[in-house]
Design a binder for these strands. Structure first.
Lengths: 229, 229
DNA sequence: ATATTTTGTGTTGTTTTCACGCAATAAAGG
DNA sequence: CCTTTATTGCGTGAAAACAACACAAAATAT
């Protein structure tokens, strides 16, 4: 066995949020230190020798931005020898989602001079190879939401149906037929309709509230259901 | 920035092969050194400080088994703190496929005392967390082959249609309707029918040979084709 | 009260998938 | 050579999924 390899390991987080007015956003931090000091980058940092990768992501996110993650999965590992100017660093990227409700609450801290949500349509220049990582994450989000109900993770716990509609419509980049969409989604049997109306915002008839039933979804998946929108 | 983290990075390879008589197989090596000396394990090893992860996989596979990989993609990164008894080691697992034709040629060498193909239905006990890694790879193979033509990578360059049929039937674990399957696959327009017949094995009418056209496939994907079996 | 905005629902024609049967081809065996 | 046997290769009808489409009901704003 080798004595030392001298490769360092970091985690990076691509965290998505959503809001009907703003659209889909991603969480970025402004770097406080070199290299790329002052530039925007994905939140993340070095893995401690005794913590799991997932724990490292959660810790870094809390330290740097204060957000609470609702969904987390591994995205990809980036290991090109020259991706960091300092030394060989391998980064395990994680893909995260926060609920709509608390997607604004941010508090920059630690390594971060600032933390902000950026619309995925208007992104600043990023440090390292984070542009590439982020692009992969966005692709994953887009392709994943048509065969897995991660769309619901972006919304609030209770939401009017139109929110779901808008989310899918914006993220897929095309208009969707309200009636067919509703038929399909309701047919999956993973949404519960509540006896509660959405608070009205301006004019128009307020819609009923719905909520995603994750337990039912997991059950159906285990039985071999094939989800697709 | 930290001085040293003392986490090591390895790559592991899950390489699949296929043969009509034997079925789907995976390449394993018998470890020559501790820990887990004498046990079967996934081929792999430490990443050199200056080589890319993909290069490390290719090098280790050549060193330990001599196989030539036809398709390679990253699977997942395993980083539980206790997954190696020696020290903290993070492993980036890669998923590979060799063509049916040369799936037997093996030469154990380097760190490996032996190298062999095992049917995925009959696996030995494995070192480290390789059981878990392999399970994930098999799941990925199964789920991936229905929306990406990686099945073709397992077959020979030229193959009779029935081979493809058998492959899908065994891997999906259910019988498939030959007529509908043929219609669907041919409808994708990524298979070329050759003016050549398969060598007859035993009785029965020999089938025509086909070959996968990867260029056409890539073209179609770029145009937004949605492949599904 | 009237205008405006947003929700909620049903039908029909079209396309895709699935299930299924039979004739044609070629090798093997007598 | 001729029969037997195994395997290929094609077509059709029934069922299911999908896409297109319009209007009444509920609530707010003026």
């Amino acid at each position: 066995m080798k004595t030392t390899q001298n490769i360092d390991v970091t985690v990076d987080a691509i965290v998505f949020g959503y809001n009907k007015e703003i659209g889909v956003t991603v969480l970025l931090i402004k770097r406080k230190n070199d290299p790329f000091k002052g530039q925007w980058a994905l939140p993340g940092g070095f893995v401690e020798p005794t913590e799991s990768l997932e724990l490292a992501v959660a810790r870094e996110l809390k330290e740097e931005t204060g957000v609470k993650i609702n969904y987390l999965e591994q995205l990809y590992t980036f290991g090109q020898p020259d991706r960091d100017p300092r030394k060989r660093i391998i980064s395990v990227a994680y893909f995260g989602i926060v609920k709509s409700s608390q997607f604004k609450k941010l508090k920059a801290a630690d390594d971060a001079e600032d933390a902000e949500w950026f619309k995925i349509k208007h992104l600043p220049a990023l440090a390292f190879d984070h542009q590439k990582i982020l692009k992969m994450a966005i692709d994953r989000l887009r392709s994943k939401m048509i065969y897995q109900p991660i769309g619901f993770e972006l919304l609030d716990k209770k939401f009017p149906f139109s929110d779901l509609e808008h989310l899918y419509s914006t993220l897929l980049g095309r208009p969707i037929d309200r009636r067919n969409f509703r038929k399909k989604v309701m047919g999956l049997g993973i949404l519960e309709e509540l006896d509660e109306k959405a608070p009205s915002l301006g004019a128009g008839r307020p819609g009923n509230l719905f909520q995603f039933n994750k337990a039912t979804y997991n059950q159906l998946v285990k039985e071999g259901m094939h989800f697709e929108i």
